Simulated scan of single mutants.
Amino acid sequence: MKTMCLIVPCYNEEPTVPLFFDTVEKVFADNRDTFSDINHEYLFINDGSSDGTLAEFRKLHERFPETVHYISFSRNFGKEAGLAAGLQHATGDYIAVMDVDLQDPPQLLPKMLTTLESGDYDCVGTMREDRKGEPPIRSFFSRSFYALINRISKVQIIPNARDYRLMTRQMVDAILELPEYNRFSKGIFNWVGFRTTYLKFENAPRAAGETHWSFWQLFNYSIEAIVDFSDVPLKIATFLGSLLSFISVISIFIVIIRKIIWGNSVGGWASMVTIMLFIGGVQLFCLGIIGNYIGKIYLETKHRPQYIVQEKK
């Protein structure tokens, strides 16, 4: 009999954990024919929660010791670390990644499993049909991010795609061969390849609690994604540096010719200061881009663990 493992990263999700578990269990109970040859298990990841999330995991494990397992970090390491831990510790033939807030509809699991068992695909992902209920400014920047990264990166990322997906053991093993510290899972899922199809669903509100992603956190996450999967920013910095150098050489010739013909140099300190500030700003901008890449290299060369496990059941 095959096994399906559900990886569920959590951070301060005390009220949503029991709701999630009961909802998913109902899906399995209502689709016994589809899951007749499948054993399922849960692998919850506690990403340094400060509320009673870990206590909820312990309660579920006590009730269902063979079905519910959890890993608890020593502190908050971020969602990417939670996903990495889940993939590294998950066992089974099929591995699903889900959010605990029920914005990833568990009702899709039967169709996802049927699609994988047909043998036509190695991964069944999900994507939202729209972004209803989301602030317009966040939707605008989300669309802009996908348009930008798909233009500058060789790895194409499906707009509105979620981390919620069901994968074969072979695909997960391929993902685990990428030991990088700086991770952007949506890009990694696509980088490894394999045959993938997507199911669409309508956007739904959280079952309980509030989102822990602020606009600034999402912005930083998008910057990390661009740096992880594209070197175009470095090429832009190189182009700007070359362009300004060329303009500077032309300007030197203009100043010399003006001095020879009219006997005076360029007048006006204001224009000179403006040009200096502009060039200095461009230089700092380029240094910032280079510094971002160097910072990523610095983190990779330290070989620090992505997370530290404090408790595991």
Rank of each mutant, 00 (worst) to 15 (best):
H69N: 01
A84K: 11
V68W: 05
E224F: 02
L43T: 01
F189W: 09
D37H: 06
A208M: 06
F20E: 00
C10F: 13
G268H: 05
G209S: 06
I254A: 08
L176G: 05
L109M: 15
R138M: 07
N31H: 10
L113H: 03
W269G: 09
D104H: 10
T301L: 15
A237T: 07
Q103T: 15
Y70G: 09
E210M: 14
S242Y: 01
L166T: 01
F194A: 05
F201M: 12
F194W: 07
L19H: 04
L234N: 02
A96K: 06
G280R: 10
E14G: 06
Q156W: 14
T23W: 02
I158E: 04
S271L: 12
T67L: 12
F20I: 09
F253L: 14
L19E: 02
I297P: 03
M272H: 05
V97C: 11
G119C: 12
I247Q: 07
L199N: 02
E202P: 06
F189K: 13
D163H: 08
A161R: 14
E13C: 01
T115N: 03
L43A: 06
Q156E: 13
S251L: 07
D33P: 01
G48E: 07
D122I: 04
V27G: 15
E117W: 04
F20S: 11
N12I: 07
Y181H: 10
D130K: 10
P136I: 09
M1Y: 01
R138P: 01
I250V: 15
F219E: 02
I71V: 15
L176H: 05
T197F: 00
A29K: 04
S144G: 05
S144F: 13
K59V: 11
R138L: 14
F285R: 03
F145Q: 09
G78R: 02
V172W: 04
T3V: 08
K235P: 03
G119Y: 11
N190E: 14
R143V: 03
W216N: 02
C286I: 07
V27H: 08
N190I: 06
T23C: 11
P305H: 12
P110C: 07
N220E: 00
I152Q: 01
T23G: 04
G92N: 01
Q306A: 14
S245I: 14
M276T: 07
R206G: 09
Y70L: 08
I260F: 09
A225D: 11
S248Y: 04
R304Q: 07
I250M: 10
L109I: 13
